[in-house]
Write a protein that binds this DNA or RNA. Structure first.
Length: 451
RNA sequence: GUGGUUGUAGUUCAGUUGGUUAGAACGCCUGAUUGUGGUUCAGGAGGUCGCCGGUUCAAGUCCGGUCUUCCACCCCA
């Protein structure tokens, strides 16, 4: 028999893992709701015409395509086959697994525009798929937790999402993170001033690698693009200067020499944060941040853990015309996406999962014989009725075995039933951590377990 | 997609220049303990050495392919 396995880059989640993932989702969802977002869901599959071309050429390759049902070769010819995989898949596949939640959301907004009241705040927590090569913190199936505000240009949105990011990580008790901020227009101004107009994307890619490959390597990449390295060197020096955001923005504006709404928006963003002096913001202006997704047009965000080696755990930004690709122009929006799987990895490594986030019953009822089991049925029902998560050991086996079971599952309390207990209606409740046993009536036990 | 890396018991790993019945620790099962788990002690079960093929008298060990893991690049949650 073939050895059982699951596809590359996918994972099974055991009981504790699942419970902890649910724990994270609950926290994020609670914050989303607190900020006034409403949930939507979109299908796992989209038509390829919706997905293709939205993530760049690279992205098209990473899409999982779904083979057409039935005789998928029906409408193909030898010529199609000879044209190679890039053309051929068009003939045999018309659906694909979603690559992110933002593009399906744009499609949803355009399709349902007449039923949507703008500004529309939606959240969406669903898995996405990418045919990437798996690595640490990189999976082929992973969950995104998105919150988007669409149909408004208000600069309050940028501040609001920053508050949301901080609240989410606060509720997860994750403190070691940094929110990096930049602006797409500023990046374009930087490229233009360095003689790289029209080559903004490769410029951004080079700049984004600064902390990885260093100043020299970035400059030589700029030279390779026929850019002006002496201007870029000024950028790189400025990026690492320990000065406040306002003067940093002003100095960059001086270097690039162009009037640009990006500078104004960044200035007003930081001014907006100052409206909340009691908040402990972990925000950093970083002109080298250049998120790849091409639909961003305004401010961009990226959240990175500072103590755990891991890529970004949250990212997003403003897009002026996301729905434009589906024919609805002039609808500005802004969104962020939390990466559940990476947040999980960071919390695990930082040992931040609370003891309580593991599930299982709070009390196990164990029994010595048939009579006790029958009594236990009623007892466990009464406990559950009182809102206590309780379980009854289902088989009539030795008491050691039942105790071991409770111990292995980490069940905090065990209640034992024998003939004496049935007669007296008084039960020993054992605390499995301290080992102490308290005898009490059912009513008092309910009070003890459910304060 | 390119280059590298990993795979031996449920888990983490040993396994000599190819050479008899492939080991350890932890875990698991049974008992010491027929109304009390976690500690201790005694015993026990468990492996087509990822898969396919090749070289050889002989392959866990060498060679090729394949799958998987992790890493770098690319890109990204």
């Amino acid at each position: 028999m073939e050895k059982l396995s699951i596809p590359k880059g996918t994972r099974d989640f055991g009981q504790i893992e699942s419970f902890r993932r649910k724990f994270i989702i609950d926290k994020i969802q609670k914050e989303f709701i607190k900020y006034g977002f409403s949930p939507i869901e979109t299908p796992t599959m989209e038509n390829l015409s919706v997905l293709m071309g939205k993530y760049g050429e690279e992205g098209d390759q990473l899409l999982f395509k779904v083979l057409n049902s039935g005789d998928f070769l029906k409408n193909t010819t030898q010529k199609d086959y000879e044209s190679g995989h890039k053309g051929f898949f068009n003939k045999i596949s018309e659906k694909g697994l979603r690559y992110d939640l933002t593009v399906p959301f744009a499609r949803y907004v355009v399709m349902n525009q007449h039923n949507i009241t703008f500004p529309f705040k939606r959240y969406q927590i669903q898995p996405v798929w990418r045919a990437d090569r798996p690595q640490r913190g990189r999976y082929r199936e992973f969950y995104q937790c998105d919150a988007d505000i669409i149909g408004t240009r208000s600069s309050w949105n940028e501040v609001e999402l920053t508050l949301l990011i901080h609240d989410v990580f606060k509720s997860l008790e994750l403190e070691d993170f940094i929110v990096k901020i930049n602006h797409r227009e500023v990046l374009f101004a930087m490229a233009a001033a360095a003689d790289l107009k029209g080559k903004e994307i490769p410029f951004c890619v080079a700049l984004d690698k600064l902390d990885k490959i260093g100043t020299e390597a970035v400059l030589s990449e700029v030279e390779g693009l026929n850019g002006n390295p002496s201007i870029v060197l000024k950028y790189l020096k400025l990026i690492n200067e320990p000065i406040d955001e306002k003067s940093k923005i002003e100095r960059l504006a001086k270097i690039t020499g162009a009037q640009n709404k990006g500078y104004e928006e960044l200035l007003s963003f930081f001014k907006g944060l100052n409206e909340f002096p009691a908040r402990n913001f972990k925000v950093e202006l970083d002109f080298s941040l250049a998120r790849g997704l091409s639909y961003y047009t305004g401010m961009i965000y990226e959240v990175k853990p500072t103590k755990v080696k891991m890529g970004s755990i949250c990212g997003g930004g403003r897009y002026d015309d996301l729905t434009g690709m589906f024919g609805l122009n002039g609808v500005s929006g802004i969104g962020i996406s939390f990466g559940l799987d990476r947040i999980y990895d960071v919390l695990l490594e930082s040992q931040l999962f609370p003891e309580t986030a593991k599930g299982g019953p709070q009390v196990l009822v164990i029994h010595l014989d048939e009579m006790s089991f029958k009594h236990g049925i009623q007892l466990v029902d009464a406990l559950r009725d009182a809102g206590i998560s309780a379980d009854l050991y289902p088989d009539n086996v030795k008491i050691q075995k039942q105790m071991t079971y409770a111990n292995k599952l980490g069940i905090p309390f065990v209640l034992t039933i024998g003939s004496d207990e049935i007669a007296q209606e008084n039960y020993p409740l054992k605390n499995m951590v301290s080992g102490e046993t308290t005898r009490a009536s059912l009513q008092n036990i309910i009070k003890l377990l459910n304060p």
